[in-house]
Design a protein around this nucleic acid. Structure first.
Lengths: 258, 258
DNA sequence: AAAGTCGCTTGACATTTATCAATTTGGGCA
DNA sequence: TGCCCAAATTGATAAATGTCAAGCGACTTT
């Protein structure tokens, strides 16, 4: 295990408050693994022996039922995954596969559970990280149940725009069929949703999407901080918990209750 | 604060490993509140100052967007809610309202966060509880994205049957329009979904639903432990974490990978 | 008991989404 | 460069779901 790799995760919120000695102990059996694109890391139902931390590349979490499958989330570095299963020593509920060549750090689940019991700060950090993931899923369900296809796409584009620094032309970070599955629709319907958004100034060319008229697009999308996380880039790259702590909790929102 | 009430939550997994002294400290500012049916406890977007624990009654968690609303979960005693927001000191992402006359215990969020930092066992218990909630949401999203309306209803009925002890005739625990929203459909479509299931031996009379021919219904529903939690009643009433620890993690599920 | 309310159901219709088939596009590779 | 394959798009059609309106039935209120 190269020190340079461990140092990257040393800065994660998850390990922030930990003493060096305990960090070395917790990451003792860790190893860094390289995977090609489209490698399945784990099938849903599998027992979970490791916490995975994506260092480079991209990982898709998906669910399957009766020959159907759906993408539940797509992760970018640096992200942990299947943390909840590690905490509960339970089987995975989602499959995980790489979308690109990826570098993934694997930490012993058992060591981490032991460390949780020995290091109060670490247990708190884990609780925070899982809480962040939980809130991400709440957003995802609301997005899915309350919005139609074109609305989900419009909001996806606006969120992407924020994450890419607010520029006019955003770049889709993965294939359209993957995006379609993430947005809960077929590839065909994604094409049609893009066509619908052309009335709102969305111009597509390959993976480049120009948001020519943001105002009408925004009116259609109606993004909400209670569904969409528009955290600016660079603010919270150290975990899902940090993403959910932005913006700082505000008092008295009664004016917006409608 | 009556001791008899505190004793009920003393037995929760969440407070299991805690010393009596610290328990008294953590629950210091707690109070038990009675609410009528249809009382809104919290609007989405509100700052969260308390952890809520439902002692009696029923609570609906719902999300709103653009005049649409959807039920995300319905809780029965004894359940905590908005724990993730408490952990992160963030605003609520869901509204909460009572469906029936309810008794709810409210614990100071700040005290709990302090206790997490002081009591390692408690922090671990919180991490486990949130992990259980997280996995419940993963199941919910898979249910929503992978199944059609009639399939969701069929699985709901089968899960209900297990929870009510395996009897032939189950009782719907709340109004059909609420159930419809929970299942992600309109009340009209729920009626039609019940009509569809009549071909599979489902006979409805008011809130009584007779599952006359379980075998064909099961074939349609195709329940999966990776989506549906068929934990038998009485096994894990002490929190969402316990619900997710059942059944015990099994090694080698490769035969079922398909 | 009559009137009214509310939840549920049913039918007709509109909209959305999925499916199937046929091309077209575009990227990787010899 | 040109070939080849997978991805993306488009059209036609089917299935699922939502919407609107009417009616039924149980319950409450007066």
């Amino acid at each position: 295990m190269r020190d340079v790799d461990l140092n990257k995760i040393r800065n994660l919120q998850l390990f922030a408050g930990m003493s060096d000695a305990r960090f070395v102990d917790a990451t003792g059996g860790a190893f860094l693994q390289n995977f090609p694109a489209n490698a399945t890391l784990m099938y849903e139902g599998d027992p979970v022996d490791f916490l995975y931390i994506l260092m480079e590349g991209a990982v898709e979490l998906q669910g399957t039922w009766k020959d159907k499958e759906s993408t539940l989330a797509i992760l970018r570095p640096i992200s942990t995954f299947i943390l909840a299963a590690v905490v509960l020593d339970a089987n995975a509920l989602m499959s995980a596969r790489t979308l690109e060549k990826s570098q993934i750090l694997m930490l012993s689940a058992e060591s981490l559970r032991r460390t949780m019991n020995e290091d109060p700060g670490f247990a708190v950090a884990v609780a925070q990280e899982v809480s962040g993931c939980y809130r991400g899923l709440v957003r995802s369900i609301k997005n899915q149940k309350l919005r139609g296809g074109a609305e989900r796409l419009a909001n996806y584009l606006l969120t992407l725009q924020v994450r890419q620094g607010g520029i006019e032309t955003v770049t889709l970070p993965y294939e359209k069929r993957t995006l379609a599955s993430l947005l809960g629709m077929t590839a065909e319907n994604l094409s049609r949703a893009f066509a619908t958004l052309s009335d709102y100034g969305v111009e597509v060319q390959g993976s480049e999407v120009k948001i020519a008229r943001p105002v009408p697009l925004r009116r259609l999308a109606a993004p909400s901080p209670l569904i969409d996380n528009h955290m600016p880039p660079g603010k919270g790259t150290t975990g899902k918990a940090a993403k959910e702590m932005w913006p700082p909790s505000e008092r008295s929102c009664s004016a917006e209750r409608g």
